[in-house]
């Protein structure tokens, strides 16, 4: 009986894992960095990619772009350099799932909205302050998404610095550029972030404010402060007090 229960649980969760729809996956995971026929973005325009590259190459690159780059593949390295060494997240997909996405791209992809066209270079000091408040969680995002500071740092902002689970975003604006950064915030393609903000997408105004804050931080440059030692010291003080 116990074996039956375990087996049914495994089958249940496995079934969940195999429910795959290419358009929904493309929108959620690929569309934040790529377009199909609307020009380069964070990553290259994917129009015609199934003709330019072999399926085998595309499969390898989609599953682990860094492995292909590190193997010395000239095309992969050229693309990596062209797009400012931005790492494409590995896609944990089965062969048939990748084929479904490639077929979708071959047939023109999905209709993608252009999104908010405001550039952070036009932001006011109020926009930047508002973005800082959102980043640090002083103001909550409308749809309940976690504040950026949970996982990211920017310069010296936040109590003893921001989070370090995700990358430091001080130079994110230079790296992703205005449009790409906006997309990355609005529809993040990074696996954990994608799940965190699933159903909790930031509004256009929130994206613009955060982007404006990151633009300002990028201009001001970074500071390296050793926060770990201060945090450990405070924990040690706590133990002594206890």
């Amino acid at each position: 009986m116990k074996r039956l229960i375990i087996l049914s649980l495994i089958l249940g969760v496995t079934h969940q894992a195999f429910a795959f729809e290419a358009p929904a996956y493309f929108e959620k995971s690929c569309g934040s960095c790529h377009t199909v026929g609307r020009g380069d973005d964070v990553g290259p325009d994917l129009k015609g990619v199934t003709e330019r590259r072999t399926r085998e190459w595309l499969h390898q690159f989609i599953q682990s772009s860094q492995s292909v780059i590190q193997s010395g593949d000239p095309v992969a390295n050229e693309l990596f350099a062209k797009f400012k060494n931005k790492k494409m997240p590995d896609q944990d997909l089965a062969v048939e799932e990748i084929d479904a996405i490639l077929d979708l791209i071959k047939n023109g992809g999905i209709s993608q909205t252009a999104g908010d066209s405001r550039s952070a270079t036009t932001s006011t000091p109020e926009d930047v302050t508002k973005g800082e408040d959102f980043f640090l969680g002083r103001i909550s995002f409308k749809n309940g998404g976690a504040p950026c500071v949970s996982c990211h740092s920017v310069s010296e902002y936040g109590p003893l610095g921001g989070g370090v689970l995700g990358p430091n975003l001080t130079q994110a604006y230079s790296k992703y550029e205005d449009k790409g950064l906006g997309r990355a915030i609005k529809k993040p393609a990074f696996r954990v972030m994608k799940e965190i903000y699933s159903g909790k997408e930031l509004t256009d105004d929130e994206v613009f404010a955060v982007k404006s804050f990151l633009y300002k931080a990028d201009q001001q440059g970074s500071q390296n402060i050793d926060f770990e030692k201060k945090f450990i010291f405070l924990g040690g003080v706590g133990v002594v007090v206890m």
Binding site: R138, I139, S140, P147, P159, G235, G238, V239
Partner: peptide
């Protein structure tokens, strides 16, 4: 998240947790 929205409060929570961890 609401508690942590004030940086000092988040710091208090984190240091408290670290203290009990230690």
């Amino acid at each position: 998240l609401l508690w942590n929205s004030v940086p000092v409060r988040m710091l208090i929570l984190e240091v408290t947790a670290l203290t009990f961890g230690a």
